[in-house]
Amino acid sequence: MISLSLKKIAKITNGKLYGSNLVINKIVIDTKQVVPGCLFIVLIGKKFDAHNFIENAIIKGCAAIIMQKNIKCCISYIIVKNTSIALGDIASWIRQSTNAKILAITGSCGKSSVKEMTSSILKQDGNTISTIGNFNNHIGVPITLLQLTKKHKYGVIELGANQPGEIFYSSKISRPEVVLINNIYYAHLEGFKSLLGVSKAKSEIFSGLKSNGIIIINLDSHHLSQWKKNISQKDIIYFSIKKKNRAIFFLVTLKFTYMVHLLQYIPRREK
């Protein structure tokens, strides 16, 4: 990640710093990943509260902590309103501080395979980061973006969700130059209620797309008409298996090789 001072981090997160203004080179959210000198962000979930593990993080050598509760520590710490949002704010700042071109991928199925294939191809052209495993939610996406440095040329970010609003948030943080909706099928219906709900959730990926960005859509997707009114002014590339006569048809390798050229082309089109 890009080195940041605690004073800068406090400003990014609208937090209040207590203690020394240290320089941070690593951020973690799990005490198992704590190393000497890192910043530990204390998250709160439905079934856990990492404030209970602050002492353990300090014993392991973390240099500073971001937390919601005003717990006095023997090391530097920052108090924020919401640690999860603070994580996203830091990731967003780092993403905007690099020149890496981001390709965001979502879909009901196959997105991890698409992510791996795309990342493998882009790595042939320059330093590339990609989502680790299935870290594709509102916590995993920021964790991936924190890896970015000035040396990275590309980032392949998988955006997943179990409920409405998650992809909207992740896309806003990622600010992609290219977005791909791989497909829309019946998945996570408990969170989205219907296939139309799934379709609307996946379309949230458009929210963070840069003004001169490119959209790649599977023309075979359900409820495609729901998206068209919101993306009519964007550059769109369609691919299809069932509707070859109505779409640009890519073989798998050709499709993702073409993405490389799209990403290289974008800088020359910026206003």
Results as ranks from 00 to 15, higher is better:
214 I>E: 04
241 I>R: 15
138 H>Q: 09
92 S>F: 00
176 P>C: 12
80 V>F: 06
156 V>H: 14
138 H>N: 03
14 N>G: 06
55 E>Q: 14
146 L>M: 11
105 I>L: 09
211 S>E: 14
202 K>M: 03
232 S>L: 11
185 Y>K: 13
173 I>M: 01
113 S>F: 08
14 N>C: 06
205 I>Q: 06
197 G>K: 05
95 R>E: 01
65 I>H: 08
196 L>K: 15
71 I>S: 11
221 S>D: 12
150 K>P: 05
257 T>N: 15
174 S>K: 04
213 G>E: 11
214 I>P: 05
157 I>R: 13
88 G>V: 03
228 K>V: 09
96 Q>A: 07
75 I>P: 02
4 L>C: 03
45 G>C: 10
268 R>P: 01
252 V>I: 15
17 L>K: 09
228 K>T: 11
93 W>Y: 15
95 R>N: 07
257 T>V: 10
253 T>Y: 14
4 L>H: 02
246 R>H: 08
52 N>L: 13
111 K>Y: 10
57 A>C: 07
177 E>C: 13
246 R>D: 14
160 G>N: 05
108 S>V: 06
179 V>D: 08
166 E>P: 06
35 V>R: 08
132 I>G: 04
24 I>P: 05
15 G>D: 07
16 K>H: 12
198 V>S: 12
201 A>G: 12
89 D>R: 01
96 Q>M: 11
120 S>I: 07
67 M>Y: 03
180 L>C: 13
45 G>I: 03
263 L>D: 06
89 D>F: 01
80 V>W: 02
66 I>C: 03
104 A>L: 03
22 L>E: 12
197 G>F: 09
204 E>V: 02
22 L>Y: 07
152 H>D: 15
215 I>M: 11
58 I>P: 10
140 G>D: 03
45 G>S: 09
254 L>A: 13
38 C>M: 04
107 G>Y: 12
204 E>W: 05
114 V>F: 13
228 K>W: 14
206 F>W: 02
211 S>L: 11
19 G>Q: 05
100 A>T: 13
229 K>I: 07
230 N>D: 12
120 S>G: 13
199 S>I: 06
80 V>Q: 02
72 K>H: 14
108 S>L: 08
75 I>K: 04
256 F>T: 03
235 D>V: 10
244 K>I: 03
242 K>C: 11
133 G>C: 12
106 T>W: 11
57 A>E: 02
247 A>R: 04
41 I>M: 07
117 M>W: 14
198 V>F: 10
132 I>E: 15
53 F>R: 02
48 F>Y: 12
249 F>C: 14
126 G>Q: 04
270 E>Q: 15
146 L>P: 05
118 T>H: 11
231 I>A: 05
